[in-house]
């Protein structure tokens, strides 16, 4: 039997202590609110500038005429952005989906983790580096010059790891039981994956592709190095002819001393921002509903 234990120190809720805690609490919540307001405020400011000045600059001419010097319209740029973005997607979506299938369905052994790591790192490589790489290899060495082909390949390289990882995550959400059911009926790998898994995961996969589209539309630096700029509509050549795109207009025209150029820059920013935001919102709405969807990292 031991001696009686020493009495526990009385924890006094002294009033000054309580006050201090309340003040600290208030400060804490206050700071977090300020942080949030800073971000929200910045977002509102950006949207206000882009939407108001951009809307102001819109006119029928902008979407029906091509660029002439520092004025005119953006038809060539709009067309160019769409061609480059879809060109990039045509190259990256099938390949990215195939890689995503491999990582989700056949992840046994050592190859899959290595590829996944490489894909994740590739996402983080600055787009200018990819653009420069394409410049050195495609524009110069292969002689493609500034062209739709070079621009599309650059965008494809940027989108590829992104589509791969989002497809992988969408496929992993497909319950194991569905796969087992298909295998038990004697289906081969290709049938199980293409007939059951991909259709079930399609919303997630398509969303990944849409997000990659949004990224492609917003890119500038790699295209400066691979597609350059053109005042004309696409001539149909894949190589040796440059093409225009909206983001170039934003960058190049705002620094020119002509009001007409500024107007084009804001109009281009309006289109690009609107497009990107709509896709991002739509994709979040589709994805966030799904339970267990892990946040895909943003570029």
């Amino acid at each position: 039997m031991g001696t009686a234990a020493a009495p526990l120190p009385r924890i006094r809720a002294a009033s000054h202590h309580r006050l201090r805690r309340t003040i600290l609490d208030f400060l804490g919540w206050g700071m977090s609110a300020i942080a949030f307001l800073l971000l929200g405020g910045a977002m509102v400011w950006i949207l206000a500038v882009v939407v108001m000045r951009g809307y102001h600059a819109l006119s029928l001419t902008v979407i029906t005429h091509v660029t002439e010097g520092y004025g005119g319209g953006l038809l060539n740029a709009i067309e160019g952005t769409l061609i480059l973005a879809f060109g990039g997607l045509i190259l990256s979506a099938p390949l990215g989906l195939a890689a995503g299938i491999y990582l989700a369905e056949f992840d046994r052994g050592r190859l899959a983790p290595v590829i996944r790591f490489l894909a994740d790192v590739l996402v983080g490589v600055p787009s200018i580096v990819i653009g420069y790489f394409c410049y050195v290899t495609l524009v110069e060495r292969l002689g493609w010059k500034f062209s739709v082909a070079a621009g599309s390949v650059a965008l494809a390289i940027i989108s590829l790891p992104y589509i791969c990882r989002t497809s992988e995550m969408a496929l992993r959400q497909v319950p194991r039981a569905l796969r087992e059911g298909a295998y038990a009926l004697g289906a081969r790998d290709s049938r199980v994956v293409l007939g059951i898994c991909v259709p079930t995961a399609l919303p997630g996969i398509l969303t990944g592709v849409l997000l990659a589209l949004a990224i492609s539309v917003g890119e500038t630096a790699p295209l400066i190095y691979t597609a350059d700029w053109s005042n004309y509509l696409w001539t149909g050549h894949l190589t040796k002819e440059p093409i225009g795109y909206l983001t170039y207009a934003i960058w190049a025209f705002i620094t020119e001393p002509f009001a007409s150029a500024h107007a084009l820059a804001y109009a281009a920013a309006f289109f690009v921002t609107l497009f990107v935001l709509l896709i991002s919102i739509a994709s979040r709405m589709v994805l966030v509903e799904r339970p267990g969807w892990r946040r895909p990292w943003t570029r």
Partner: peptide, 20 residues
Amino acid sequence: SVVDLRRRVGMVFQKSNPFP
């Protein structure tokens, strides 16, 4: 062939797993 085997020997699982 495993595909032949699974055609001849079918399976029903604990929790029903109909395809979507």
